[in-house]
Design a protein around this nucleic acid. Structure first.
Lengths: 360, 360
DNA sequence: CTGAAAGCGCTTACAG
DNA sequence: CTGAAAGCGCTTACAG
């Protein structure tokens, strides 16, 4: 501002010229603005303003991976759209923070540098160090689709009123998917799961291992699977599980191949996301199996293209984003919202599942 | 930091504890960090750090509309993915800035409050006040798919080396689309265009008005249309133009209806985006016209679902985003890149165009 | 290996 | 209606 003072005659009057026009005589204001323009003054520096005011006018979204990767996922886009549904009316910026999943970068998680009034964490496993870094920020935070409160190391003790949790009912969703397959008569079912922990190696797993899972979405869904199996009176070993800790088109295909190779007698597959399910469908086709005649497939998310006609567990990604942001805004304003109930899911039966033996 | 000093014994040692661990004895560092944790210190405040260092560690993307709207557009998502391809390796955050298109908000354009090291402006018409606000920031800036340098009010004089421009060859793209239709024998062609200016009312327009257009993407594409017409020796009045200044599903459908209603003799339509083209296809179908037999349709962008088999002008959105970010990073580092050549486009003929008279 | 001092650029009560 | 003063929280040479 000193810059503009030279031209005009005032230190803090410049500030007023920009921020409270009504407190200045129009003439003075005019003069100040003109001088500023001539000096190539870019307007009040946001960083300084944020520091002084204590408000960033933005919230940060931590997606737990590189931004480019996150933007490739339709569910994430929907979620972000929901978030902005709530933040747009407040003119709040959205800071996307690039993170390397479970990798120790020398500078540490990027979340530490984001200037924001609050944090939304989307789909980051509970054992990822990013979570720890997020909590350290000590900002109002909403954690979505992630650890349960109790899973976060060091959270129980501190008693932070700033952190809110939000997620779907993973147990019920997975249970519905599995029950659907069981009701169709399938008795040998493949499960393409996320990783039991962030650093788990890709490959086979056992349903029985679920108790030891640290990634709690995986844990909850496996539990849902087990519950459906139990309700149908089927052994847990009927489920053939492979885990895919880091989902990319390649890892998804590899897992699908591995599953169909090692357990060719599987007549149905439940995949933990539509992306995984689509990979399963395409791999199955390559291996000469017809979906749904030879192989039933259920996904999760309901984000596949309509043309795929994928049977899946639907969840309202956009609503979830909006709700997360709404709760965050409340938290930023100092009122802590009551804990949210798990969001419902809904099984949608389309064309990729059919009764056992309907092929041939 | 004073907070932690109370606990430990040092003012700036705390800073070092967080930022240059190697300059501290492990023991001291340990002690400081522990004290910080106990006091609930959230780590160095990003705003203060940005102010002091003069680096925000983030770049802002101005999309010229509300974030929720922007995220609904596949081309924008692709563009953003390209941007992050370039920024992710640098661990730079991406600040999405919500703007109201051509609306005077009391607080002014949100871009003024974004803490960033550089700005990318995507697809904002040259006459939108947002552009002015962006330029005022006086930050390294890349303007994509927008005004030509000369179109920006007040830019010519200042001589800012900070602003870079990047865009596709709109004239050539539109010309290719139009030529394709003309080569198929169509002689009465509808054009569903963007607005001639940001505040233009939706509705009919004339190709001849293009000279007066202030939105320069519209201008360039209309010029491409005229050029194709001229090359084919067809009167300019053969083109029936409607403009859609603000594209939403509703305005797109309204425009399509209006066009088909007022000029039912049109045998082909060139729409300025795939979203518009898809609306045209669906409206045409409702009105009992078969695509492509009764009506050929060409889009622009190549972002429609593959299942639509839309003939369109392809452009590499992701590459564009990456290039924009790369150039911005160069500009931030003080070297001003040489002006970029217009990016190429490519007509892709799929299933929504056919020779005139092939129906029946 | 650690500390005292200066300053990044703003805004905000408070006087005048 | 305008200005002087304090302070937001940090980092960075620079001494010791």
């Amino acid at each position: 501002v000193a810059v503009a003072r030279a031209a005009g005659v005032s230190p803090s009057t410049v500030s007023n010229a920009f921020n409270r026009p009504e407190r200045l005589s129009p003439a003075l204001r005019e003069r100040v603005l003109r001088a500023a323009a001539e000096l190539g003054y870019g307007g009040p520096d946001p960083a300084a303003r944020i520091l002084r005011r204590g408000r960033a006018g933005a919230i940060a979204v931590i997606l737990g991976r590189l931004i480019a990767d996150a933007l490739g996922d339709p569910a994430t886009i929907e979620f972000l759209a929901g978030v902005s549904d709530a933040t747009d009316p407040e003119q709040l910026g959205l800071v996307l923070v690039p993170e390397m999943p479970y990798r120790d970068v020398p500078e540490g998680p990027a979340v530490r540098n984001a200037a924001a009034d609050g944090l939304i964490v989307f789909s980051v496993p509970g054992d990822d160090p990013i979570i720890t870094a997020v909590l350290q920020r000590n900002l109002p935070t909403v954690v979505v689709d992630s650890p349960a409160l109790s899973d976060i190391p060091g959270l129980a003790e501190g008693g932070r009123p700033l952190v809110d949790f939000l997620g779907i009912d993973d147990v019920a969703g997975a249970e519905a998917a599995m029950r659907h397959l069981l009701e169709l008569g399938h008795r040998r079912i493949g499960v393409v799961a996320f990783g039991l922990s962030t650093h788990a190696p890709a490959g086979p797993a056992e349903l029985a291992q679920r108790g030891a899972a640290t990634a709690n979405v995986t844990k909850a869904r496996l539990q849902g699977c087990a519950r459906a199996l139990a309700a149908a009176g089927v052994e847990e070993t009927a489920a053939v599980v492979v885990q895919v800790p880091v989902v990319t088109p390649e890892t998804a295909r590899t897992a699908a191949h591995a599953l169909l190779e090692s357990a060719p007698d599987v007549s149905a597959i439940f995949a933990f996301s539509d992306r995984l399910a689509m990979a399963v469908c395409s791999v199955a086709r390559e291996r000469g199996r017809i979906v749904p005649d030879d192989l039933s497939v259920v996904g999760f998310d309901d984000t596949a293209p309509a043309s795929a006609r994928l049977t899946t567990v639907h969840q309202a990604h956009r609503d979830k984003g909006r709700l997360a942001a709404e709760r965050l805004l409340v938290a930023i304003n100092g009122e802590l919202p009551a804990p949210a109930a798990p969001l419902p899911t809904r099984l949608i039966v389309r064309a990729t599942t059919s009764p056992l033996g309907s092929g041939r």
